[in-house]
Amino acid sequence: MASGVKPRVKVPKSAAAGDTITIKTLISHKMESGQRKDDDGNLIPRSIINRFTCEFNGEMVIDVTLEPAISTNPYFQFDALVPEAGEFKFTWYDDDGSVYDTAKKIAVS
């Protein structure tokens, strides 16, 4: 597992039903591209987050494929429609098989 990996998300605590909200996410990850060489000239193996998903009450909101050219600490900001109260689930998939997830509840006012 890559070290220092920590997911962060920012979701409003509540919204009106049918509202569009802005979600911000960031995961601290070195995103080693696999193109670089170390001091001895050996290739540093690729180690990136290759997929990011966000689900709301089990329904897919966004499913992203990440490529090696994406920089350290990938940040995503996107809008989502909130039809009802529920939970956003965020998942990041690492090259090494690790899966990092976090969830945020949202109330409807």
């Binding site: 220092g4 962060r8 960031l26 600490n73």
Partner: peptide
């Protein structure tokens, strides 16, 4: 704070 990239270092 979410947008402030310095906070990654602060959290560490």
């Amino acid at each position: 704070d979410f947008d402030n990239p310095a906070m990654i270092f602060v959290e560490a």
